[in-house]
Design a protein around this nucleic acid. Structure first.
Lengths: 265, 265
DNA sequence: CGCATTTTTGACGAATATCAAAAAAAGTGG
DNA sequence: CCACTTTTTTTGATATTCGTCAAAAATGCG
C-alpha cells in the first residue's frame, strides 16, 4: 500500500540553510518568458515595467494589437480603491507606478490582506471568475495603472497565441503563488516576518532598487493581516531583529544588514 | 483623506447568523454557466459529472472537439499520485470518480494540504504556470480521471470561444477559492472545522449525495493540515461537536444533525 | 490473526493574542 | 509654517488558544 502520511509527501531533501522562495517572487517567470519591446510611439513606449507586463507577450509584428489592448491610464490616489469586491469586472490592470494591497473580506467582519503588488504586476485577475471582483485593490501610495479591457484581451488572444499562453501562465502563476503562501501558516511568526522582508527585498531589486534598503508602503497592521498575525507581533519582531543586528528599522524605512541571518529563520 | 485601516474595508453589514461560503463551493459557477450535453457515443456520454467538467463548455455543434480534447482515462489507486510536484505538465485532469488531495511542500520539510477535490473538479491547473506541477495530487480512494492534453485545449480554445472563456473562468475561480481560503486563518479552530464540514456537506449535495450524512475520505491529519491545525485539535473538536449534539461521528462517518449550530460558529 | 496506522483523550507548555498606555509620526486646517 | 488631532508604532503585563508529548483504544490491512 501507499503510505498516506503528510510526512511522506514532504521532500525534506534540501539544504535547510538556503534561502528559498516561500513567497514566490512574482516576476520570476521573466527568466524564460519572451519579452517583446514596445513599438516606439505606442502607449507602452518608455514604460519602465514593460518587461513585467502582460502586453510584453505581444510580438513585434502585431504591435498595433498592443494599442488596441492598452487603452487608458488611471491615476489612483493613496488610499483610494482601484476596484472593490462586488464591482463588475471589465478590465485587467497593469501597475505602471506605485503599489497596491488586495484585501479579501467576509461579511462576518473578518478580512485579510492577500497581497502587496508592485509596479509591473497585474491586478484584477480574480474578476474573471464571475465578472465581479472578489477583493478590494487599494493604492498604498499615489499610483498609476493601465487598463486592459478583458474583452479586448480575449479577442487578441484569438489572433496572438503568445498572448493567450501568457494569460494562462499569469493566471496559473497566481494560483501557484497563493498555494505557496498558504505554507506560511506552518512557520513561526518570526520566520514569516523574515520571509516577508526577504521577498520584498528581492522584488525591489528586480525593479532596480536597492535590495537592502527600502521603504515599507504598508502599515504594521497590514503586514500582520497579510502574514496572519497581530500588528503588535510584527512590531515586536522588527524590534527584535534590530536588537539582533539583522536589520535597521526607522519607522517604515528598513535596512537589511544581515540577509543570511533572516534566511535561516 | 482616505482611511487606510483594515476595518474600513471589511463589509460587516451582513447578518452574522447566515451561513456564508468561506470555502467557496467549487461548483457554484454552474448556476449561470452554459452546460452543453455530451454527444451520444462520445467519451463523455453517460459521465455523471459532465455538468461540472471543462468539456461541458463545448457547444453541441462542435462536439467532435470534445473527443479531440478528452483523450484517455486513467485509474489511480488509493494513495497513488496522479502527479507530483516537479513532474512536467502536459494535461489537465477531470475527476470522473473518487477524490484527491493536493499537497504543496517546501524543501525545509513543511507541507500543507491545499485542497480536497471531488468528482467533476479539475486538477493540474497549477502546471500551466511553468510547465511543471507545483504540488502533488494524491488519490484519497480508488479513482478515475480523464486526461485533457493542454495543447489540445489551447488549440480548441482558438476555435471555440466558450471553451476559452470557461478555461479562464476555471483558472480565476481557483484564484478566488484560494484567496477565500486564506480567510480561515482568522477563524478559531472551532469555526474552521465547522466551516469545513459544511463545505463538504454542500459539495456532496451538489453531487447527489446526502448533505447530512457522508464519509470523510481523508485522515484527521490531512484535515488538520488543510485547516492549519494539529490532528489532535481536529479530533478534539469533532468530539466536542458530538457532545454538543451537533454531529454524530463514528470514525470517518459523519452525520450533521444541527447544521445551523455549525453555521454560527 | 497480528501488525501498522489512525484516532482519542489527558496533562502540560509555549507562542501569540489581547489589553493598555505612552511615544512617535502623519495628516489637517488656520 | 505651526499647533492640533488622528493614526500608527512601540512596549509591557497578562490571558488563552492551541501545540506538544504521551499512551491507550480503535480501526484497517495483509
Amino acid at each position: 500500500m501507499f503510505p498516506l502520511t503528510l510526512e511522506s509527501l514532504s521532500r525534506a531533501d534540501a539544504d535547510a540553510h538556503v534561502a528559498y522562495p516561500i513567497f514566490k517572487l512574482v516576476c520570476d517567470a521573466t527568466q524564460a518568458r519572451p519579452v517583446n519591446p514596445p513599438r516606439p510611439g505606442s502607449q507602452c513606449d518608455h514604460c519602465v515595467v514593460h518587461w513585467a507586463c502582460l502586453a510584453s507577450a505581444i510580438p513585434y509584428g502585431q504591435r498595433d494589437g498592443l494599442d488596441r489592448m492598452v487603452h487608458t491610464w488611471r491615476r489612483i490616489a493613496k488610499g483610494a480603491p482601484l476596484f472593490r469586491a462586488g464591482d463588475s469586472f471589465h478590465a485587467l490592470y497593469a501597475i505602471r507606478s506605485g503599489s497596491f494591497k488586495t484585501v479579501v473580506s467576509h461579511p462576518h467582519g473578518i478580512s485579510r490582506v492577500t497581497g502587496f503588488h508592485l509596479a509591473g504586476e497585474t491586478l484584477g485577475l480574480d474578476g474573471i471568475a464571475d465578472s465581479h471582483h472578489s477583493c478590494d485593490a487599494v493604492a498604498l501610495e499615489d499610483s498609476t495603472v493601465c487598463s486592459m479591457p478583458f474583452h479586448c484581451i480575449e479577442a487578441l488572444c484569438h489572433d496572438i497565441y503568445p498572448l493567450q499562453h501568457r494569460l494562462h501562465q499569469l493566471l496559473a502563476e497566481e494560483i501557484v503563488h497563493e498555494s505557496r503562501l498558504m505554507l506560511i501558516s506552518r512557520l513561526t511568526a518570526e520566520a514569516r516576518v523574515a520571509a516577508f522582508l526577504l521577498n520584498l527585498s528581492g522584488r525591489m531589486q528586480e525593479r532596480g532598487y536597492s535590495s537592502s534598503s527600502f521603504t515599507l508602503r504598508m502599515t504594521r497592521r497590514e503586514i500582520g493581516s497579510y502574514l496572519g498575525m497581530q500588528l503588535e507581533t510584527v512590531s515586536r519582531l522588527l524590534s527584535r531583529f534590530q536588537r539582533e543586528g539583522w536589520i535597521t528599522v526607522s519607522g517604515r524605512n528598513i535596512e537589511l544588514t544581515d540577509k543570511a541571518a533572516l534566511a535561516v529563520l
